[in-house]
Design a protein around this nucleic acid. Structure first.
Lengths: 241, 241
DNA sequence: CACGATTATATGTCTAGACATATAAGTCAA
DNA sequence: TTGACTTATATGTCTAGACATATAATCGTG
């Protein structure tokens, strides 16, 4: 599997699309930024306008850019994310509810990936990983317990990031643009350890969310979140065809 | 709001795309069906191949069709939907697992919408509704309990549909193309009634999915599904920007 | 200054070709 | 029958143009 999708034998329009996509994803061209006009890209790549147009049209279809006649093409602010962000950034979720956000780092370990780590990250062989355990609270009431693994070969900066102040989810969101995520949701009843972490009764229902995030076929992080099941609701909105 | 996107002033390639999209969505061209070759569409619409190619390329980018060199273009089985379908069509989910699907209609009532019905459907005032209670099983083991409300002003045919044979979810899927859905997921522990319906112990964890589906701002159905929490996993995959 | 008319320009769509390339299908030999 | 080779064909990409159209910017006028 290649690092970048569609990069097997880059045709010109795919290269143009990938170039622009990369600048958007890395933040070099932030939302609202005007990307070069078609005629400028034509000059830069030395091709016909149809080739540039095809690249830009696909980016537009993917909602990465917005094209406006006479004005140009502009980087869109992520919009699909909102539904997901509600899940992805617990701090934002809690503060959006008008409640006081609390965060507590319980454990942080830097280690060479074990077999079970690789399995969790969905990779054959990872180098080093950071394992983080922490807890989120709202108005001083436990809100969610988090158990996370970050692949350092994808996110080397995570090795030195200070997770005692900033929750890893927020940190990642601001340092690593993700492109895809998969959630597996299930329900369990709280065992002793979970009950203690969430300050609920043993046997109370818990919502379990396992999220696995990657960018361009490259694993970023795997996280398990435990919520008190009766006090939390997870909202996901889809669009169908 | 218009019913069909991009239909304001249909240019030719959009018309071609919409024509094909319609046939796919209505099921006239089912998954696996080979759609006409480019040269056939060129002949039918009397345009150049690039125009047809643009329509087909967009359908391919939207994952509605798959294009294979030398073979042609084929309707894909819903796969962006698959994550959702897994939720939406329990019968398909169970049979996909290679297990025997069982369905049992427990109750069906046609009534004028009560205040609580309107609330559940998210409308101010509905006319008549159908309320359905049923149960799904896999290999004769209870799989999910369903409690559904269908808005008859949006789906009049549902009044006369025979839900004793076909589960309402499957029926709706084949009769009413949905465009958007919102899921609210939570966890509970089984009470007496739930425990009996799902044949699990009282106090066992349950996953609750409330799904609310609409099309073009028109409510179609609201459904609550109860799954045994330890035996069921819900997978959702998102794409971000 | 405010507002309507004009103009310049970037994107939107389309054509009639061209060559590249993956691959289904057919051919032939072991 | 099976495997290797050849061929036909549908899609993939690209060009150098063309005209259409929405609209930002400019210009003029009251």
């Amino acid at each position: 599997m290649s690092l970048v999708t569609d990069a097997d034998k880059p045709t010109l329009y795919k290269r143009i699309r990938a170039d622009i996509e990369k600048r958007i994803l890395t933040g070099e061209w932030p939302p609202g930024h005007r990307i070069p006009f078609e005629h400028e890209l034509v000059a830069r790549y030395g091709c016909s306008r149809m080739t540039v147009n095809k690249a830009l049209s696909e980016l537009a279809q993917a909602d990465l850019i917005e094209r406006r006649r006479r004005a140009g093409s502009f980087v869109r602010r992520p919009q699909h994310q909102s539904a997901v962000l509600k899940i992805a950034d617990i701090r934002a979720e809690i503060t959006a509810l008008g409640r006081a956000y609390g965060y507590e780092l319980i454990g942080r370990k830097l280690r060479a990936a074990t077999a079970s780590d690789c399995d969790r990250l969905g990779v054959k062989k990872a180098g080093k990983v950071v394992a983080i355990t922490c807890r989120h609270s709202a108005d001083n009431v436990p809100f969610a317990a988090e158990d996370r693994l970050i692949d350092l070969s994808s996110v080397p900066d995570a090795a030195t990031a200070d997770f005692s102040r900033e929750p890893p989810g927020s940190w990642l969101l601001h340092h690593v643009p993700w492109t895809e995520a998969e959630h597996t949701i299930s329900a369990i009843v709280a065992d002793d350890r979970t009950a203690e972490a969430l300050d609920i009764a043993v046997g109370a229902p818990c919502l379990v969310i396992d999220r696995y995030t990657w960018r361009s076929a490259r694993t970023i992080t795997a996280v398990r979140l435990l919520y008190p099941g009766d006090s939390h609701r997870l909202v996901a909105r889809f669009k169908g065809g």
